[in-house]
Design a protein around this nucleic acid. Structure first.
Length: 613
DNA sequence: AATTAAGGCGCG
DNA sequence: AAAGCGCGCCTTAATT
């Protein structure tokens, strides 16, 4: 049952709609000021079936959270729209593909859909080869406007969310993979709830600890525009070594020029290149860069801007990455340097439960491709160790390089060398990503397990590629076109894994938040709550007495996420779970603990354990 | 003066 | 172009 909310002056209209999209009864009108208590009452009466449906969780949920409520489930029309437009515009292909049944067109409004609206006829059903002109997609017009959709996020233009919901439900029913899409839309909406909750609660942050760390590394806070003394000192060392009194170490151009003048054969000033050069200037230069980065990205200005009342409240952008991963906005939420994680400290009497899914993406690939041998390799232990045990490669580091190489499309270097050995040991898994790569090279879209579609190449790119293979093409164009196609292939190759891993993570997070709410009801801030999320890692801020129960919840939810996505396929998703006072203490279990997947637990120190199904 | 691109580095 | 995916955001350099 959906309860669709919309604003009408100072009132809120609530219309019930059943799972088939049929309107149930008359709309109720609730004064906006009394919405929280009304929502609360509805949740209490029928929360297990009810799905709050609104244009945008970011517009509706914060005020409910502010009133001390948490809702169980939601349907975010904006996020669902985006997913469905992507799924709908994907041409079905292949001789055996079901006839296109795309349902009613959804309006693609640029202000609401992050991916560019795309559309196009299916390519020829026969197996088209790479760079065959026939394989390139022609691009047609956007789908017609079918569903009224607000042009602005505040819903100020006429917009009927009931109609929008009905259209979405019809589209889902009409698309192949409806069950997956239904799940995906629910998971994405749950993510939106979690993101709002995490922003509301914030990540506990000790500004004093952060500031002390800055002083230790940079010296006292400098006045505006001045360079911290430690950076100035290092700059002096660099100037001395490079014999350049005026060198600005922040200018890559100047530094590169000075390095070459000093006789170093480098083509850039990037860390990876400098690391392999022997010269007395390298060490202080890398040290300067490390500290300058801390100063610029997470220095005092960052602290002033982003930490208030002991909390860091970043904005999470749900589905902000094409793969469905979250992005962040403001404060570099998803790039918190490990260097400063010691400032993330639980409140007195509270703990951080830090959980990390071990080798999530390779495990997702094993399950996606139904590769039992790879799944076996990871059962109950570190997957890379398991790969070594099969004899495919010599050591863990090789296993990791090979795995990443396979998922990213490495052709050279260590990864490129090792992928063939992986392919012999795990042919199903490797074939899966290879197929995705070939599809991308042909200009096709690929999908995640639940049906999130990768964006298709733009009309301009396809046309440029076509032109590059014409008889009168400019010299070199063909090579460039092949490079672009390969680049697309690496993207689609990675997309199938990254996007499905993002779905696992959404399911995991959804399970955690639902269980936390059930087990520990009441306002967020007074009970265990999600505090941070980072692709394959979750942090729950919890009263110390509840930390062990929370750790169990996190593990149960991981196992459940595996079942939701992959059913009975025998894949495990081990977690390292640490109950700690500060975030930095959670990083990597001690070596004796077997890389973080043993069963030791202790209330006060770092501890790890494995999730089993 | 105000944007945009490039170089670089943090995270997964 | 790191050998190979996805991001955000900082400073400097280039362009309008």
């Amino acid at each position: 049952m959906y309860v669709v909310l919309s604003r009408s002056g100072r009132d809120v209209r609530a219309q019930s709609v059943d799972d088939g999209g049929r309107v149930i009864g008359e709309p109720q009108v609730i004064p906006a000021t009394r919405l929280p208590e009304w929502v609360d009452a509805q949740e209490a009466q029928r929360s297990s079936t009810l799905r709050w449906t609104w244009s945008d969780t970011r517009d509706w949920y914060p005020s409910l959270l502010g009133a001390g409520l948490r809702v169980r489930r939601a349907h975010d029309l904006r996020l669902s729209h985006r997913i469905l437009v992507g799924a709908q515009s994907r041409p079905s292909r292949g001789a055996s593909a079901a006839p296109a049944q795309e349902g009613p067109p959804l309006r693609s409004d640029a202000s609401w859909t992050a991916p560019e609206p795309v559309g196009g006829p299916p390519p020829p059903a026969d197996a088209a080869t790479l760079f065959d002109d026939a394989a390139l997609l022609a691009v047609t017009t956007e789908p017609d406007v079918g569903v009224p959709w607000p042009a602005t996020a505040d819903g100020s233009v006429p917009f009927d969310p009931v109609e929008a919901l009905q259209a979405q439900l019809r589209v889902i029913d009409a698309l192949p993979g409806a069950a997956g899409l239904r799940l995906l839309v629910a998971a994405e909406s749950a993510g939106a709830l979690a993101a709002a909750e995490m922003r509301a609660a914030g990540l506990p942050w000790r500004a004093d600890i952060h500031a002390a760390l800055l002083e230790a590394v940079l010296g006292p806070r400098p006045s505006m525009g001045a360079r911290p003394v430690e950076l100035e000192r290092l700059a002096g060392v660099l100037r001395h070594h490079l014999d350049d009194r005026a060198l600005n170490p922040d200018s890559p151009t100047e530094v590169l020029r000075a390095l070459r003048r000093a006789g170093l054969s480098v083509s850039s000033t990037s860390k990876w290149e400098l690391q392999r050069v022997e010269h007395p200037v390298i060490e202080p230069l890398l040290e300067y860069k490390r500290r300058a980065r801390l100063y610029a990205a997470n220095g005092w200005v960052w602290l002033d801007t982003w930490v208030r009342d002991g909390r860091f409240r970043p904005e999470y952008v749900v589905g902000g990455v094409v793969s469905g991963r979250w992005a962040g906005s403001g404060g570099g939420a998803l790039q918190l340097p490990k260097q400063i994680r010691s400032a993330v400290v639980a409140d007195p009497g509270w703990r951080l439960v830090v959980a990390d899914a071990a080798q999530l993406e390779p495990r997702v690939l094993a399950a996606l491709s139904r590769d039992h041998r790879m799944a076996d390799a990871g059962r109950g232990r570190d997957l890379y160790d398991g790969i070594v045990a099969t004899g495919a490669v010599e050591d863990r580091s090789q296993a990791k390089s090979a795995m990443l190489g396979a998922m990213y499309g490495a052709t050279q270097g260590r990864g490129g060398q090792l992928v063939p050995r992986l392919a012999r040991a795990f042919p199903l898994a490797i074939a899966y990503v290879e197929r995705a790569a070939r599809a991308g090279e042909r200009g096709e879209s690929v999908t995640s397990l639940l049906g999130r579609a990768s964006p298709q190449p733009s009309a301009a790119e396809i046309e440029a590629e076509r032109a590059a293979f014409a008889a009168d093409a400019v010299p070199g164009a063909e090579r460039a076109a092949r490079a672009r196609a390969r680049s697309r292939g690496r993207f689609t190759r990675n997309f199938v894994v990254q996007a499905t891993a993002a779905e696992w993570a959404l399911a995991w997070m959804a399970g955690v938040r639902t269980r936390l709410r059930e087990r520990f009801p009441g306002p967020l801030e007074h009970s265990p709550h999600l505090a941070y999320f980072l692709h394959d890692e979750l942090v729950v801020h919890a009263p110390a007495a509840s930390a062990d129960a929370v750790a169990d919840i996190v593990r149960e939810s991981a196992a459940e996420a595996g079942r939701i996505l992959f059913g009975t396929f025998p894949i495990t998703f081990p977690l390292s779970v640490a109950v700690v006072d500060d975030y930095s203490a959670a990083k990597d279990a001690p070596p004796s603990a077997g890389r973080g997947i043993t069963d030791t637990t202790a209330a006060s120190g770092p501890s790890t354990s494995i999730a089993r199904r």
